[in-house]
Design a protein around this nucleic acid. Structure first.
Lengths: 204, 204
DNA sequence: TTACAAACATACCGATTGTTTGTATATATG
DNA sequence: CATATATACAAACAATCGGTATGTTTGTAA
């Protein structure tokens, strides 16, 4: 029974919503495609029509939500303040605040975290693309500072950008996994601010 | 066909080695118990005799290798130097150096990283135990510093220990995943040293 | 020597994933 | 407007995998 294009797009959305809900409730591997299909009111045939496989569902969910890291990178590339590190700190704090206020994004990040080992080698991994994007934005900022000769001794704009992006990713990952008694605000934020302070000192 | 105790221990080891090799090659979920058994020259019966289930294999592999974090925590609890942060930095650098020199440990850490979401809730998760152990060791050190009144403004021995343990875990995780162009030495080490420097300043 | 349990192998079962086939119908086309 | 065709699924099928239950041999202790 063929449906109209809009109806098809609808069922696709219903499948996505059902998958998202179930993944959040039970975790990726504990959810069967049968469950997803049933929750969406279709059969597995429909699921496999709209998505190549189970991983495809995860990919689709990821693609749907705007990753907070992409968000952060965007804001960073916009901000052209005169005190770059202050602005940077504000943007990061803002992102942390928004992330922490949205439990759905946190849960989704946790689910999606299981994705980047699954897509280990063969797939074009957007996760690393986001990181590179973030790193590039950070690089611009540190480059400005470096040209003013205000970057402390061992650091280069390259290494500082790499360091901060890794720390940001690491902190967010630790947070979404939620094993440590640790929040983005104030814990992660304090760490980042301390690092930024270290880069703020004129020389050493 | 019952074997002698030594022979049994041997086959157990062979199964473990086979599983380890295959997990490293193809990742946990892509390896079937049939493959493991075949590679070890036994059947799945033997595997299920020695290990409760597939996760049990992972647990056994983890238990076999002394986790570098446990190692670090141990060394930290030993070291009673007069300049605690210097000693701390040395121990961390040493651990990083050893970790980076041992590709097998790195690969195993990557595999084991898939474990702590698999054992998300029901299991007694030793991963968090290690973290707590590390955190406790760090707390002792920062407590000494704090009592001397040498811990900068917003930080407490609690928060500093939490922060450093999270950063260490985050950095190591980022490293084992190997997506970023980033090494423990010098990149992660530099970040840690910068953080330690920040805690070293007498006041602000 | 005998009873028992260790150390597996073999066979089976349920769950799940991906594939193939069938089919009704929306939509493009002449 | 009639009809061919691709679409949007459902339903049946095949294969794999993890776990379990059972069978069998043989060290080992009494």
């Amino acid at each position: 029974m063929r449906r109209t294009k809009e109806q098809a797009a609808e069922t696709r959305q219903e499948i996505l919503r059902a998958a998202e809900t179930l993944f959040l409730q039970k975790g990726y591997s504990a959810v069967s495609l049968e469950e997803v299909a049933a929750a969406a009111g279709v059969t597995r045939g429909a699921v496999h029509w709209h998505f190549v496989n189970k991983q495809g569902l995860l990919f689709a969910i990821r693609d749907e939500m705007q990753l907070p890291m992409r968000d952060l990178a965007e804001q960073l590339s916009l901000d052209r303040a005169c005190a770059p590190l202050d602005a940077l700190g504000d943007v990061i704090t803002g992102t942390f605040t928004r992330l922490q206020a949205d439990p759905r994004q946190r849960a989704l990040l946790k689910v999606l975290h299981q994705l980047d080992f699954a897509a280990s080698d063969d797939e074009t991994d957007d996760g690393t693309i986001f990181r590179q994007q973030l790193q590039a934005s950070l690089f611009k900022i540190f480059d400005v500072i470096d040209r003013k000769g205000e970057l402390p001794a061992p650091w280069t704009s390259q290494s500082a950008a790499l360091a901060l992006s890794v720390v940001l990713n690491g902190l967010v990952n630790e947070w979404v996994r939620g094993k440590a008694d640790f929040e983005l605000i104030p814990d992660a934020s304090a760490i980042v601010q301390t690092l930024l302070d270290a880069w703020r000192v004129p020389a050493r």
